[in-house]
Design a protein around this nucleic acid. Structure first.
Lengths: 206, 206
DNA sequence: GTCTATAGGCAGATAGAC
DNA sequence: GTCTATCTGCCTATAGAC
């Protein structure tokens, strides 16, 4: 076990995956500083010592948490890109990913960790930035392509629009969750995205 | 001491104010779960026991932290409203308040606490919502007035635009702080606010 | 109002048996 | 891989002297 298959990702066992699942949910609801090894081990019916066997330190658990999250997210983005027609629809699906996370009573893992940023070990901090970079890159590509095809309309660098959308989704999630109101998030997202669709849409549903 | 002057606000002593100052900065940088009484007392050169004299529990400290923050914020909003000409300029100043917080290496207190929301006592949760409500109300008023005067241009309910701006500022702050990059925040804010200014501005500088 | 002293609990982490 | 047992340290909070 614990054989390194790449520089960042490990060959995890089934128990390790279960630990990550529970820790991920707790981190997304309570924050990384808001749960303990005891919380995770209690829920899985194992001891804290066993947990330390799979993840030597909490910092290491945290780092792998983000690494796995980013990997899954990357897969989702690829699926959206390959399985969707039209950049406007891709953006809609991207927004829906965030809405679904919120519907599950969770925050985006990295939005959550960004709040605790200064208290986290450097290894986790860089993984968080990588996650944001990943989102920024993907969105920038989609926006550039969308403007070229006429599916999307906006002024200035696509990268700026990408940062606006990413920031808005993270913040709107944060606020909406305080009210337990997913609709509040959806209204904000729809307004922002709606402003990027041209009056006459080439190949959209309307 | 500790005489109640209103339902929420207490007549605080000078020491109590100093405690709130330090706790506020720590909460804005590390989160409410990211600092302890020891952190505050060490910095002020007093003991933890003294701290408990001024704030019986950490939950009570937290509640008063938000109450004071909201009070100060309300004063800032009033100052902006009374001391600024034109709703577009008011929005610009509102955004600048957030930018200045970020420049001081801090997050918005309530944006920070919103991330820890589920771990906080109910008294703090309701104070956080009140802060967001305060911002939403003020922005809604400004947007409505701005549209009526022709200073601002947007479609749909002013309240929706208010929620969009609030969410975006909180989220953009969160992300920008992870990069230690205030400009990243300013670019996002400028793009959003820029989209609400009409092509021909009645009384703005341009 | 501030102190010393301490309670009681939980945190992350380790040693070593099975 | 999982366990029991334990360590050390920090946490919030209180009692009571000054």
């Amino acid at each position: 076990m614990h054989r390194v298959t790449s520089s960042q990702t490990k060959q995890t066992t089934r128990t390790a995956e279960q630990i990550l699942d529970v820790a991920e949910r707790l981190a997304q609801t309570r924050g990384f500083n808001g749960f303990s090894y005891a919380d995770v081990s209690d829920e899985l019916g194992i001891t804290k010592a066993s947990l330390h066997y799979h993840f030597r330190t909490k910092a290491e658990l945290g780092r792998q948490l983000i690494a796995r999250y980013s990997l899954v997210f990357r897969g989702i983005l690829e699926e959206i890109e390959l399985g969707t027609t039209g950049e406007a629809a891709m953006v809609d699906r991207y927004v829906k990913v965030y809405a679904d996370v919120l519907r599950g009573q969770r925050m985006c893992l990295c939005g959550m960790l960004a709040a605790e940023y200064t208290t986290l070990p450097e290894a986790m901090q860089s993984e968080i930035r990588r996650f944001f970079d990943l989102n920024e890159e993907w969105l920038t590509t989609i926006f550039e392509r969308g403007r070229a095809s006429g599916e999307l309309a906006f002024e200035g660098p696509a990268r700026d629009v990408a940062n606006l959308l990413l920031g808005t989704l993270e913040g709107a999630m944060l606020v909406a969750r305080s009210y337990g109101d997913v609709q509040r998030f959806e209204a904000v997202a729809a307004r922002l995205v709606g402003g990027m669709k041209p009056p006459l849409r080439p190949r959209s549903t309307a």
